[in-house]
């Protein structure tokens, strides 16, 4: 165990002393600050009468509901319930130009963070083969499984660090640009059919957490390809292609019943929470988690077998 931690320490030393990793961190911080500046100085003036907006939005939603079925209808109903709760309890929607509003919007950074993590995962094993340094790792009294695990943990740690950086960075940027005010503004969400008030920090952490599931799966795919084919570009290219093309594949396959077993139908778990909707009819949270775990186990097994069995 002690040696495992030292291996993780090694991997982190190698990763975070790379110029490309430092550039990723700078890009992430740069993106948050840029979006913040644009929101502050270039955004449209928000209407001061939020009640009128919410009311007219609710009317539009109700019209839409009359010709919608299935998951989409459920999502609309939840949205309407939240709007009505808002009006009844006098809770205005979060402004984009507030610390929590900005922090909440900045959860979109998870897309960039996922791509960065895929890039790291795609290179962390094959890079060692490419440079020949894999020999330094495998001629030491450490099992190959331990070497591989230390790299996998490092990938997830990098993803986690980026996410934490994004959360803290966007909160601070939001605070500096829009003032550290209205900190106890509640988020409204639907839990068990009822509208509830939620702490904003809990809400934002939940968004990050659900997106992190997708990050883990995507990083694992890249990691698997990286250790099975020892080719960095292939690992990064295929995984990003799968991530981008996943939704397209879902649309093409939507008429088949077995679409719910496709990985991409189960990646976005946020549909099961709050006012979201699952991407495919008939999915449940338990089912999606099971499908994800099966895929995950397969990816891990392929990567592990390829790395531990093959000649170097």
């Amino acid at each position: 165990m002690y040696k495992f931690l030292r291996l993780v320490q090694n991997e982190n030393m190698k990763l975070f002393r790379k110029t490309s990793t430092l550039i990723m961190i700078l890009m992430l911080i740069g993106a948050i600050i840029t979006v913040g500046a644009i929101t502050k100085y270039n955004g449209l003036q928000e209407d001061t009468d939020w009640r009128q907006n919410v009311k007219s939005e609710t009317v539009a939603l109700k019209q839409q509901l009359s010709h919608t079925h299935g998951n989409a209808a459920k999502a609309l109903k939840k949205q309407i319930a939240v709007n009505e709760y808002r009006l009844a309890h006098n809770i205005p929607p979060l402004s984009n130009r507030s610390i929590w509003g900005f922090t909440n919007n900045a959860t979109d950074m998870m897309l960039i963070i996922t791509i960065f993590t895929i890039i790291i995962a795609g290179g962390i094993v094959s890079g060692e083969f490419h440079s020949g340094t894999i020999k330094l790792l495998l001629t030491k009294p450490v099992s190959r499984s331990t070497v591989l695990l230390s790299k996998y943990v490092t990938v997830l740690f990098a993803g986690l660090s980026f996410s934490a950086l994004s959360l803290i960075g966007s909160w601070l940027t939001g605070g500096v640009l829009f003032g550290f005010t209205d900190l106890d503004h509640p988020a409204l969400t639907v839990l068990g059919g009822k509208v509830v008030e939620e702490n904003m920090l809990v809400h934002v952490l939940a968004v990050y957490g659900l997106d992190f599931v997708q990050l883990i799966v995507m990083a694992t795919i890249a990691f698997m390809i990286s250790s099975a084919f020892r080719n960095t570009s292939l690992a990064i290219g295929l995984t990003i292609f799968a991530m981008m093309g996943g939704q397209l594949v879902l649309q093409l396959l939507a008429r088949y019943d077995w679409v719910k077993y496709v990985l991409f139908a189960n990646l976005d778990l946020s549909g099961f929470f709050g006012t979201g909707q699952p991407p495919v009819e008939g999915l449940t949270l338990g089912f999606s988690i099971t499908v994800l775990l099966v895929y995950y186990a397969v990816f891990i097994a392929i990567g592990w077998v390829a790395f531990t069995r093959r000649d170097v």
């Binding site: 040696k3 291996l7 090694n10 030393m13 190698k14 110029t19 790792l137």
Partner: peptide
Amino acid sequence: HLSGYRNLVHAARMV
């Protein structure tokens, strides 16, 4: 991208 010394530290941590 690491110094010679850090490469040795890397090796030392594995044994």
